[in-house]
């Protein structure tokens, strides 16, 4: 149908107002919410991912595309209640204490959502205790920590220690990412994985949870 292609294109092109209008119109014409999400928004964001991997898209293009995807998601998600029996898993994300940057985390969140993960975003400047509370209360499958400065990267280790002290470390997979973070660092502090970029983060979560 035309709306599917148009909505996917609006998401890929980062036209969030148009994407929202197209999604609303499709719903009003009787399209199922899940169809709007998967055949429109998810198809569009996947095309964005392809363009990024092929080098045709730059980060600003990806960001605007994600914004458009999020607009559609915000509209459709409440309508999905009960319809989607299960997601692939639940992921809690946050930028660690002292870090007010959220660009990378937001991209990872959108890519995970588009891959049908339930994402709970704790935001920026998140202390170790909040991650512990989230692990205890929300029972996520994965916790993702972002740090975007050398000065804040060290706080990742504090989260792992706090989870261990609370007896929750083994209940959850813990992944880390961000500009100064490396795979070597992830291994040294005892994280379960490191994502070099958002696409890598999705593949990592898939692998850790054994889903495809």
């Amino acid at each position: 149908m035309d709306w599917e292609q148009d909505l996917a294109a609006a998401v890929t092109e980062g036209e969030e107002i148009r994407a929202e209008e197209l999604a609303r119109a499709a719903l009003e014409e009787g399209a199922a919410p899940r169809e709007v999400l998967e055949k429109g928004a998810v198809a569009g964001i996947y095309q964005t991912g392809r363009l990024w991997e092929e080098g045709d898209y730059f980060l600003p293009d990806v960001i605007l595309s994600i914004e458009a995807f999020n607009k559609v998601m915000e509209m459709v998600e409440p309508l999905l209640a009960g319809e989607v029996a299960s997601t692939k898993g639940k992921v809690v994300l946050g930028s660690v204490e002292g870090d007010a940057h959220d660009l990378g985390k937001n991209i990872v969140a959108a890519m995970l959502r588009s891959s049908l993960y339930e994402v709970i975003d704790l935001g920026i400047d998140v202390g170790a205790e909040r991650f512990v509370e989230a692990a205890r209360d929300l029972h996520p499958d994965v916790i993702g920590l972002g740090a975007y400065m050398t000065t804040t990267m060290r706080n990742m280790e504090g989260v792992i220690t706090a989870l261990r002290e609370a007896g929750l470390r083994d209940c959850v997979k813990l992944i880390i990412g961000g500009a100064p973070v490396t795979a070597d660092y992830a291994e040294r502090i005892g994280a379960d994985g490191y994502g070099a970029d958002a696409v890598g983060a999705v593949a990592l979560v898939d692998r850790l949870l054994g889903v495809s």
């Binding site: 007010a100 920026i124 000065t151």
Partner: peptide, 8 residues
């Protein structure tokens, strides 16, 4: 640590 812009 240093103050930072509240991006929210």
């Amino acid at each position: 640590s240093e103050p930072d812009v509240d991006t929210r």
